[in-house]
Design a protein around this nucleic acid. Structure first.
Lengths: 204, 204
DNA sequence: CCGCAAAGATGCGTGCCCCGCAAAATCGGG
DNA sequence: CCCGATTTTGCGGGGCACGCATCTTTGCGG
């Protein structure tokens, strides 16, 4: 990869992070595109060369994380049963990366509150969901590869991908807003995937 | 329901329909909010009293349809097995309502092309997904009611709702873009729901 | 039957966003 | 070291989303 593309990736990430950080701090409509661009050290016009909207910049972080699931799945040993591999791949994403842990800790409480508020903004909800949807096809491709199906003609890999991300979402949601920190994410996610992979039988 | 609320519902529907029709005909960015408002016989300012954005107006139709699934589920006989009831409820939505069939037929081909093009607009994809997400919690509530679980604390009903809508989406997608009209929607949807309700076992 | 309070529709004005276009800056290979 | 290709940037315009004040409609009690 040339220096050129490296810089593009870096700028994109910088803009995405800047957007999230500023908006979590101040609130969505008190942050101008101008501010985000300044934070990332580029011109306001350049911002729109990378993202079609403010919300898309925020969701770009989410997109990256979702994309990693497909990547992680490909990296699992070929012999491993499908749902074991999937579960492992999803769980990998839940251990916080170095760019999070090494970040200057801005008061966990305050950050969580700001983040929750950010996720109530319609435009951000919408773009986050679109990001997940985009990652879904990548994940479907990985599943197709592993199961010997064709993502373009078979429903199977697409169903698996959609279901996995749905379970992932529900688990996250349970952890965050349903009952804040009642149980740890790893357990919830594992349980959610177990349930969908066993057909969600009604609890009798 | 008073005359007041009836009119509100009617206006909302009129705006939603107008948005879809005009945009399918002309393309997303060649339709102004002004045009949609005019089509529905209301002032441009009023448009934004009903919808937060142009895209949201388009997605409102989708939202209504998704909401009907939960409604249909509640109407199923109480003794019916869960997944049978769900399948029936979803299939009900696929028979075109009178407002579609009685519409002046604008050349099925042209309409389909315009619709597909509309669905490529990022903002519309995003809002449509958000609409589905909003319907999801309603569906989860219906599932919780039927299974004696609690949507606020149990993952189960939320997982079911998310999975059902995911399957619904995949089936639609398979019918529309994957291989246009290869098989009928009813069969695809039934099959998708059957697969998720049996745990999506890998095809060996 | 009438007027009154609540709720909705409308007009106006504002700030911001998103994008097209063309010029300037930057990078990578020969 | 220079040339072609790619990016960044400045400028300008068309719209969009929304707050605020005003006018109209609806539903209700006297």
């Amino acid at each position: 990869m040339g220096l050129r593309e490296q810089k593009k990736v870096a700028t994109r990430a910088a803009l995405g992070w800047a957007a999230v950080r500023l908006i979590v701090e101040r609130g969505y409509d008190k942050v101008l595109v101008e501010d985000i661009a300044a934070e990332a050290g580029v011109s306001p016009r350049t911002f729109n060369n990378y993202f079609g909207s403010k919300a898309e910049a925020v969701a770009s972080r989410h997109l990256d994380r979702c994309m990693h699931i497909a990547e992680a799945l490909r990296a699992r040993p070929a012999g491993e049963p499908l749902w074991d591999a999937i579960t492992a791949a999803v769980l990998e994403q839940l251990i916080p990366g170095p760019e999070v842990t090494s970040q200057p800790r801005p008061d966990r409480e305050v950050w969580a509150a700001g983040l929750e508020l950010m996720l109530t903004v319609p435009a951000i909800q919408a773009e986050s969901l679109r990001a997940a949807a985009r990652a879904e096809s990548t994940l479907a491709a990985a599943v197709a590869e592993r199961t010997g199906t064709d993502a373009a003609t078979d429903m199977y890999p697409n169903l698996v991908a959609a279901t996995v991300l749905a379970a992932h979402n529900v688990a996250n949601h349970s952890h965050y807003s349903l009952f804040s920190g009642k149980s740890d994410i790893l357990a919830l996610t594992t349980e959610a995937l177990r349930q969908v992979s066993s057909g969600l039988p009604p609890p009798s």
